[in-house]
């Protein structure tokens, strides 16, 4: 009963002190543990520091690729979701085939096949743009499914009301359906953005100088594995943690509103 403040019970929630004390304790404890285990491998910081430019450029490339892929995959996702609801069968089936194929394949396979297979055959040499397109096609399939389930969750009464006031189908999508879909899929979409950032690391296998590629380069040049890959992990967390916090807030907000 001496360390009662370390518990968070339904009857007696932990206070601010208990929470911050736990965090401080854990930080100190785990750091000490890491230091004891790995201190031998963590001394080459100067050498790695001289490669900060490489890291910075890699980080920028990762951010740019993820952002471009998010925009492009949202467009692809939206178009595919609409195509899946089309009355025109060839269009609908194309969308279904695309979504199911992509969702059934590992990203690695798509990257290798897309770049060394398709892009090469087409004479498409620019790795970064090819990487963005491959990543967007991958993520677009998942976004299409999010949008589709969002559209399907808009009730029949909403379509009826829209028709009853005389809106055209296009107006119905624009003023009634999409705003509701957007509000609903914003949290999963933010989560998808976080996945995109992480998935972009796979583009390193086709030689795009993004963050993982950069860290690997520094590692080969300096023979300092830990000092290269610890910053790599931190750089990804710096990108993904804010996105995931933002996602949590969005989720809370949409939950309260409906």
């Amino acid at each position: 009963m001496t360390a009662d403040f370390l518990f968070d019970r339904p009857r007696k929630p932990a206070g601010l002190f208990g929470k911050s004390f736990s965090i401080a304790l854990l930080l100190a404890g785990y750091s000490a543990l890491c230091w004891l285990a790995f201190s031998e491998s963590l001394r080459n910081w100067e050498k790695v520091w001289s490669y900060r430019e490489t890291f910075w450029n890699g980080w920028l490339t990762t951010v740019q690729i993820s952002a471009a892929a998010l925009v492009l995959s949202s467009l692809i996702g939206g178009a595919t979701a609409l195509a899946r609801r089309s009355n025109f069968l060839p269009l609908r089936y194309t969308a279904i085939a695309y979504v199911e194929t992509v969702r059934g394949l590992p990203l690695m396979v798509l990257v290798l096949f897309g770049f060394y297979g398709v892009a090469n055959a087409l004479g498409w040499q620019d790795r970064v743009s090819a990487g963005i397109v491959i990543l967007s096609l991958f993520s677009g399939a998942y976004i299409a499914e999010m949008i589709r389930s969002g559209i399907e969750s808009v009730g029949r009464s909403q379509w009826d009301s829209a028709r009853a006031i005389g809106l055209t189908p296009t107006q119905t999508y624009r003023f009634v359906v999409f705003p509701q879909v957007l509000r609903q899929i914003l949290p999963p979409l933010a989560g998808q953005f976080s996945s995109l950032i992480k998935d972009s690391s796979l583009l390193y296998i086709i030689g795009i100088p993004e963050l993982t590629f950069a860290a690997n380069q520094v590692n080969s040049a300096t023979y300092s594995t830990f000092e290269s890959f610890v910053p790599l992990g931190i750089c990804y967390l710096l990108l993904t943690l804010p996105v995931s916090l933002w996602t949590k807030r969005l989720e809370k907000k949409t939950r309260y509103e409906t």
């Binding site: 009826d160 009853a164 509701q180």
Partner: peptide
């Protein structure tokens, strides 16, 4: 039909309004 619908007013049992 759309032109016809534009000329009249309809109210259903519930969920008439757009929630957003």
């Amino acid at each position: 039909l759309r032109a016809h619908r534009q000329k009249l007013g309809v109210v259903f049992q519930a969920y008439n309004l757009f929630p957003h």
